[in-house]
Design a protein around this nucleic acid. Structure first.
Lengths: 340, 340
DNA sequence: GTGAAAGCGCTAACAT
DNA sequence: ATGTTAGCGCTTTCAC
């Protein structure tokens, strides 16, 4: 293809790396004002009345030059950053979680925060290092961080770390409660609970289980027969066998995937839902409606949950009290399908 | 609870926000040297022979003060950052993807890069803004970005954007090819392809489908009968009906979830695998072994894939050619279960 | 080998 | 209303 005259030409335009970023100085020059004014306009600093003319002239220039403030410089100067870091525990990520992340990101964006996520499952980089590296001013977890970790995060530069306290696990508890109540409402008096095998899920699972236990207690029946069920047929069969022995008739699964395992275990034993056992999952993942039979499950209004979490973040950032959260009724509810 | 004497006391220790971060100045002072030296030691600048004594004195001080360079300052001064940003398309995230992310993060960490991810599904923040905000010097996508987007990313401050060209979609293609070859190898001469309904998946799906088409071509049989199948029973039933009409006997599904939908559609029609149709998925998600029957699927060695991708990133960062990638045989292969 | 000094691009007092 | 100025914490020439 190439002639022997020299490869230099090709390389010239090989990587079309465009013009370098433009600086606030460039914008100032282009608009015929000083950097200060540019800064004021672009951050529309309150308490300043800048002539519409100047303003639009600056905005124009910025637009034209595709100016984008350099994050590091801005952060350094301002002493804060717009980055929020979400730490996702080492757990199987499913559609439920990603939906939540998206909603949270969207909600935070409306407050000017940019969300990025870090998976705890990745080795080689501790959360506080990540926090420092991206200069996050907010770090958000699924469950409260233990004090040491939180401390480390603050030292790594975080302004606020959430969730700070118990409050936020209410949704989790509620899911478990709804599951059990649903089963109890349909006449089941002896409940089983399928607990996930994956250790990253334990904390969350404890909360959901707690909710189920509470519901049983309130209904005056025995607490659920808890059996660990990982995502393998063999284990599921064992679990099912155990429940049979205990005369269980309704099973709450930690989540939909665990529920699917239960269903598989039942099938293996020649049993089927809802006749032999009623089973209810949680999270309402897309495949929940594709199981045989379709899975009754607890569905979260992720949009609302994300929004609420974002509220909490903003409140905490501005030192306010995280406004009393609305009743969660519209945030989580069971969707009845045929497995119960 | 509080007396009227004043709430000040409680607030004092309410938030145990620890001592402020220590600066390189602090370390310098504590070690009795200048900031320069601290910087040299901590970044162990090459070509400098600093006495072991001084060095350890500094390292000690840094340790003791839990010193962590401020990312924004470092980035500003050095003109580069250690942040890599992975953009995940708007698609249902599953265990496969999260595993990949973890592996990639781990591999990159070994080269000093910190990976964070951004979900495209989140509205309100364009990728280039996120890139700028976190000061990423590397942006990684699943499929090559279109030129405009890539351009925007460079302007947003990225040093390198990947994947740059076709190359990286080879794994995708290969998955489709393996699916089809598996079916063909088992005697099927008329193949169906279940294409995902979710638009975020299309690009990837095209690649996989391409691989299947190639395989059919190589085997001298007709290309697959492609039917879009989203994650609903109704659609799945239609798809199955179509395949019946076309005398298809083996079905490649874009991924395991789509395969599950196919299985559900078949069940609804009173059909079952592998007798009526053989079906093969892709990704080997945890629930693939829990379907009825257990799903034959294509499994990726995510560890290897992640590592290779990290190599490519490092190569591109240092301007090198992305070393010829090893044969992919050990990176993707079909795992035979009972649905075929 | 180590330190002094000059910025990196931006924000925020403080002038004007 | 706009410009001047002084840093933010760090890296990195360039002298010593």
């Amino acid at each position: 293809m190439g002639t022997s005259t020299g490869p230099a030409f090709r390389d010239e335009r090989a990587m079309s790396r465009p013009a370098k970023r433009s600086t606030s100085q460039d914008v100032a020059r282009a608009a015929g004002v000083s950097r200060t004014t540019v800064s004021f306009v672009l951050n529309d600093k309150p308490g300043l009345s800048i002539p519409e003319e100047t303003r639009s002239r600056i905005l124009d220039a910025a637009q034209r030059l595709d100016y984008r403030p350099l994050a590091s410089a801005r952060a350094l100067a301002a002493g804060r950053s717009d980055v929020a870091l979400l730490s996702i525990p080492d757990m199987p990520i499913g559609p439920a979680i990603s939906r939540f992340v998206e909603e949270l990101a969207t909600a935070l964006a409306q407050h000017g925060l940019t969300l990025v996520t870090h998976l705890e499952g990745a080795h080689g980089k501790a959360l506080q290092d990540v926090c420092a590296t991206v200069g996050a001013s907010v770090v958000i977890g699924f469950v409260p961080f233990d004090p040491d970790t939180a401390q480390a995060l603050y030292r790594a530069g975080a302004d606020t770390v959430l969730p700070s306290e118990p409050d936020d696990s209410r949704d989790m508890r509620l899911a478990g409660r709804l599951q059990a109540e649903h089963l109890i409402g349909r006449g089941h008096r002896r409940i089983g609970y399928a607990f996930p095998g994956h250790s990253g899920l334990h904390q969350m699972a404890e909360e959901r289980l707690r909710g189920a236990i509470d519901a049983c207690h309130d209904a005056g029946i025995d607490p659920p027969v808890v059996v660990t069920t990982d995502l393998e047929i063999a284990g599921a069969v064992q679990a099912v066998t155990r429940w049979e022995a205990e005369s269980v008739t309704g099973i709450c699964a930690f989540n939909d995937e665990t529920a699917i395992a239960v269903l598989a275990g039942m099938h293996e034993r020649g049993l089927s839902a809802p006749a032999d056992f009623a089973v209810i999952g949680a999270d309402d993942i897309p495949t929940a409606r594709l199981t045989i039979p379709a899975l009754t499950t607890v569905s979260f209004n992720l949009h609302e949950v994300g929004r609420r979490r974002a509220e909490a973040v903003m409140a905490s950032l501005s030192g306010r009290q995280p406004a009393a959260t609305s009743m969660p009724d519209d945030q989580v509810q069971v969707v009845q399908r045929s497995s119960t």
